[in-house]
Amino acid sequence: MTALSATDEVRLRELARRVRVEVVRAVYRGGGGHLGASLSAAELLVALYFTELRIRPDDPQWDGRDRFVLSKGHAALGLYATQALRGYFPIEEMASFGQLDSRFQGHPDMTRLPSLDISSGALGVGFSAAVGMALGSRLRGSSERTWTMLGDGECQEGEVWEAAFIAGRYRLDNLVAIVDLNGYQVTGWPGRTAGTQVPPWPLRALGRQWAASGWSVIAVDGHDVAAVVSAFERARAVRDRPAVIIARTLKGQGVSFMRGVHSRAITAAELGQALEELGEAS
């Protein structure tokens, strides 16, 4: 296992910070958007795109690329920002988010943006498509891998377990799922203390559910880039079954007043505060 160098760790942290900055700016400019899920997934997305995926940003449809499916499609802004920083398109183009004819839809639309391997947004559907991609690689005897990211709330969809079952049955060891276990969903269930929520899935219960479907389960702190990168390596090394990385994260990570928030608009004052918290001069 190759440890992440200190330099790379600093670089990934900085990239995750920039993803958060771009997401906050896009939501401010667009007059709304799904912030919380993009903020929780920032380290996971940059670690994937900058250390793991075999891709060619200048040739996004290169047939030998690793596939990535953002099944939790509401984190689209986080994905766009990550892809922009990786060189797929200029970050300035994200200014079109929320306007007519934008390539950056509220949920990923493959017909508009060639860097997206599938459209997603209705929860669960992306994961099934990812299973199809992994099955396709096996059928055609090619070596690309498929990665997909789900939300913890998303794991309440029945289709997720249909897909998990089939991936387990077919022992798709070229498939890795990441669950962004950020602990919140839109309404959720009330906790014992007023104003609190019980998480969509307790970590252990969710892990048992994946294991029962035939998956190798890896848990990680989803904001610790070094731990995330080493979890990717462990997942990639799993043979004879698919692997799931359950990443403990915080919804809205990085912006104090976005903790647990699913989607909303932000004011100019809030933008200033968010950028300040993210260490960005507004």
């Binding site: 047939d63 596939r67 499916v69 391997d117 599938i118 669960g124 559907v125 992306g126 994961f127 099934s128 498509a129 990812a130 299973v131 199809g132 991609m133 992994a134 099955l135 396709g136 690689s137 059928l139 055609r140 029945g158 289709e159 249909e162 897909a163 079952f165 089939i166 049955r169």
Partner: peptide, 28 residues
């Protein structure tokens, strides 16, 4: 036999898997 893909009694996932296969150049 290798191109007959049993998807079990789960039609939602079956359609999604077919979409993924189509992106990989198959005609499902």
């Amino acid at each position: 036999p290798e191109r007959f893909l049993q998807m079990g009694a789960a039609e939602q996932n079956m359609v999604g898997v077919a979409a993924g296969l189509a992106t990989m150049g198959f005609v499902p």
